[in-house]
């Protein structure tokens, strides 16, 4: 199990996609960061939501669907190690990657750009965990349904842009039609983004949005588990 984790970590570092998931949000942060006011509370939550979205919609489903497509899970079924272990290791690693990406963003934004860092640390961590759980659940569902790695990648891209738009990551919420913005707030990424902005603004995250995210995480991951095929 330990060796599996080490090998999977090595493979992740050899995966260009992992680097992109770290660098794209950072790039966005730095490009837009040059024009923000010190103490900004909008840009950093946006970059964090983008980072988590990238990991959970691109990297996670593509990796898992590819493992199934290449028969790696099946091959593992013939050894004393259960293929579920590989899934667990992957989930954990992708979570570490998401945490790393967010840590990097906060570090750069907090120091170089002088953006606001929230004082409600516990709320922030809680929002991150529940939001990431709901996004990972979507990634798992994609992995469960996609016939192969390429399809998983395609579905990830197709889902990412509308979700990012509805979450106000492409266009600010204020400039979107009211009805779209209202719907957007209750999408997984939208609820995540809004809760992060709440925390950044110094208020407690809305219990309703937290509940919405938790419900997404639960329902979608149950569906993913139901539809997942090992081969």
């Amino acid at each position: 199990m330990m060796k599996l984790a080490i090998v999977e970590t090595k493979l992740l570092t050899r995966e260009p996609g992992a680097l992109f998931s770290l660098l794209i949000p950072l790039f966005i942060l730095v490009v837009f960061g040059s024009s923000i006011e010190p103490g900004d509370t909008v840009l950093l939550p946006m970059a964090l939501a983008i980072a988590v979205g990238l990991v959970s919609l691109y990297l996670l489903p593509t990796t898992l669907a590819t493992y199934r497509e290449r028969g790696i899970l099946r091959r593992l079924s013939t050894t004393p190690v259960r293929p579920g272990n590989l899934l667990a290791v992957q989930l954990l690693l992708q979570l570490v990657l998401a945490v790393t990406a967010c840590g990097l963003l906060m570090a750069v934004a907090g120091t170089v750009l002088g953006a606001h860092l929230p004082s409600r640390v516990l709320s922030g961590v809680l929002v991150f965990l529940v939001g990431t759980a709901s996004m990972f659940a979507i990634g798992l569902l994609i992995a469960a349904l996609a016939p192969n790695g390429r399809a998983a990648n395609g579905i990830g891209v197709l889902l990412y842009f509308p979700m990012a738009y509805l979450a106000g990551l492409i266009q600010p919420m204020q400039q979107m039609p009211d009805i779209v913005a209202a719907i957007g707030e209750y999408t997984p990424l939208g609820a995540f983004g809004q809760s992060l902005r709440d925390v950044w603004a110094g208020s407690a995250p809305s219990p309703l949005l937290m509940g919405v995210m938790a419900a997404y995480a639960l329902v979608i991951s149950i569906a993913a588990a139901k539809f997942f095929r090992w081969e």
């Binding site: 493979l11 050899r14 995966e15 493992y67 290449r70 028969g71 790696i72 099946r74 091959r75 013939t78």
Partner: peptide
């Protein structure tokens, strides 16, 4: 076991 049509990760 050596299975038909299985692969390993490219890297």
């Amino acid at each position: 076991v050596q299975l038909q049509q299985t692969q390993l990760p490219e890297n």
